Computed example of a mutant assay.
Amino acid sequence: MEKLKKIFQGVPADSPIPKELLLEQENPRPTKELDRNLFITDAAKSFRLTEKVKDSAKLSVSKLNKELGQLDQISPFDWGIPGKTEEIISMEKLQTKIKSEKIKVTEAEAFVPETHILGLHPKVVFANTKSAKRNRLNRIVTKSANHTTIFGSDNRVNIYPNTYPECCVCRVEVYTKLTDASPWSYQGRGTGFMVGRKILMTSGHMRPQQPYKSWMIKVIPAYYDGRSIYGNSFYTYGESYIAYQSDVGNDMMVVKLYDNIGDTTGYFGAKSYNSDWEDMNVWTMTGYPYDKGENRPTYQSSISVVDDDDGDDVKLPDGRTVDSTQIESYADEASGASGSPLYSWFSNGQMYAIGVHHGNETDWELFGSNLHSVASGGDMLPALVVWARNNWGN
């Protein structure tokens, strides 16, 4: 943190850092070594047994190799961990009159780990040629329910996510079961990012969709070519979630995870967007869009916010209310990028996200329309992060 403050000396206080200044610096190296014992989560070691074999499940010597073990009666095992509690804050709930004071929370601090390379400019890799083809025109391309929005040239590149905060960005997969006996059914995927030791932020429309008997949200941080860069066993699941989506400004879902993976990856801070930052090309977005980031995260920097609109007032889980904001930019995006952070290093050495990527939206004006990428933010983002940290442990 102190090293970053020295690098950013001369930049105005409480200001995001221009990419040009970041490029002048080398990525600061880690000062501590990662504890590799943390690379296997409790979630990766857990499974559910049917009632019939709870007392009879055994680990024996493998029939293929005496140096290996094998689980007997593998068929009764059910992979994954279902969630426990959920709450969807509907438009009707938000429109209910709330007799409470409106609060203003402007920021939540990040955890910048000393065990990681700091990503002032992450490592660019070759594109994954297996990704879907993309359209480079400034329009939406719809195919198999997916969309792509590119503004002029595609400015996204694939990166290797071994730098902070890019290692905090997660691939998020959603599954449901119709009955206790049915298999898990894949519902879709998107992006999320760590905002606490065991707290994930993503889009509200990423929530499991009814009908279902049970739901499961799988979270894989720093996903690259089929697994986390921390190893095959570094992933976890959602235990609880609270989701909003009454308008574009509050399309957020905060998820309590079973494992404290943020202790290893670090996590983002959050900050309320300030309109003084409009047209500053200082923001970055990292995520897993289907067209270019199916297996390797995409990274786009030097994004500027071109407009911001007031969103619905939002009730926090404790009953207090906050403002939300629609943050508009020309960030290239596609299906799967939902839940990506819009973020920047700041002059105090902190890393703040100012928005949660929603998708795109058309602004209708007197002489036509304008298409933008849109993120959800405002006071709601840091306020929801602070609430989750205070109530779910941080």
Rank of each mutant, 00 (worst) to 15 (best):
S228P: 08
R207I: 01
N128I: 11
F126H: 12
A132V: 12
G204Q: 03
P165D: 07
K198D: 01
G188K: 07
N155Y: 09
N128R: 07
G226W: 10
T149Q: 05
L178K: 14
P183S: 03
T129H: 03
R136H: 10
I117G: 02
G119I: 10
R156K: 12
V195I: 14
H121S: 09
P208Q: 05
M206P: 01
M206H: 02
R156C: 14
P211S: 15
N158Y: 04
R136W: 11
I220W: 00
S228E: 11
V157G: 08
P161Y: 05
R136I: 12
K133Q: 11
C168H: 02
F126N: 13
I140N: 03
K130D: 06
F151W: 09
K213L: 09
N146G: 08
D225K: 13
G231S: 11
A222Y: 04
Q209M: 10
V125D: 02
K130L: 12
P211K: 13
C167R: 01
H116L: 10
I229A: 07
N158C: 15
R197F: 05
S182M: 10
M201V: 08
V174G: 01
S153K: 12
Y235A: 07
S185K: 10
A222N: 08
Y223F: 15
G196T: 03
I220M: 06
A181Q: 12
K198G: 00
Y164L: 07
N232Y: 14
K133M: 13
R207Q: 04
S214Y: 11
K213I: 13
V141H: 02
T176S: 06
Q209E: 08
L200R: 04
C170H: 01
R134D: 07
N135Y: 06
S214P: 07
D225H: 07
S144R: 15
N135V: 08
N155C: 10
P165A: 08
Y224K: 03
Y235R: 02
P161R: 10
V141S: 08
E166R: 01
H147E: 11
I117F: 08
S214R: 08
N128S: 11
T191N: 04
Y230C: 01
I150S: 01
K177P: 02
P165V: 10
Y235Q: 05
S228K: 05
Y212F: 15
L178F: 05
Y175F: 15
V195N: 02
S131I: 13
I229S: 06
T148F: 04
Q187R: 04
V219G: 00
G231Y: 06
R227S: 12
T202R: 04
A127H: 02
G226R: 13
S185M: 11
H205I: 11
M201Q: 05
T176A: 05
E166I: 14
L178N: 12
T142M: 15
Y175N: 00
N135P: 01
V124A: 09
H147T: 15
L120D: 03
P211A: 14
T129G: 04
Y223M: 13
I229Q: 06
R171F: 06
R227A: 10
M194H: 02
Y230D: 03
I199V: 15
Y224E: 07
Q210V: 12
